[in-house]
Amino acid sequence: MSSVNSEIVGSEANKVRQVVVDILTEVAPDEDISCLKNEVALRDQMDLDSMDFLDIVMELKKRHSIVVPQEDYPRLESLNSCVEYLSPKFLN
């Protein structure tokens, strides 16, 4: 039972991960997104600054009507933290 459950959670997590990856592809078209590590800060793997995080938030709102208040920006630090933070918002 629990393995089925974690698989569902896993595929949901993968979907959210893909949403973030798609947005990163649009926000930073010159970067190679294919080998991003889930646990490493996005800033350490890509050329992103605060203006680009504003864009990530903008795209989340535009594409998925998800609102990320400014105090939550740090939660978008890595792909893992994005998935953890955004997944509940997709379920709502």
Binding site: V27, A28, P29, D30, D47, D49, M51, D52, D55
Partner: peptide, 16 residues
């Protein structure tokens, strides 16, 4: 990384 030109390209969604 971290160059002004790179910043504006990303912000305007243009490619190098």
């Amino acid at each position: 990384k971290g160059k002004p030109l790179g910043k504006i390209l990303k912000q305007l969604r243009l490619r190098y």
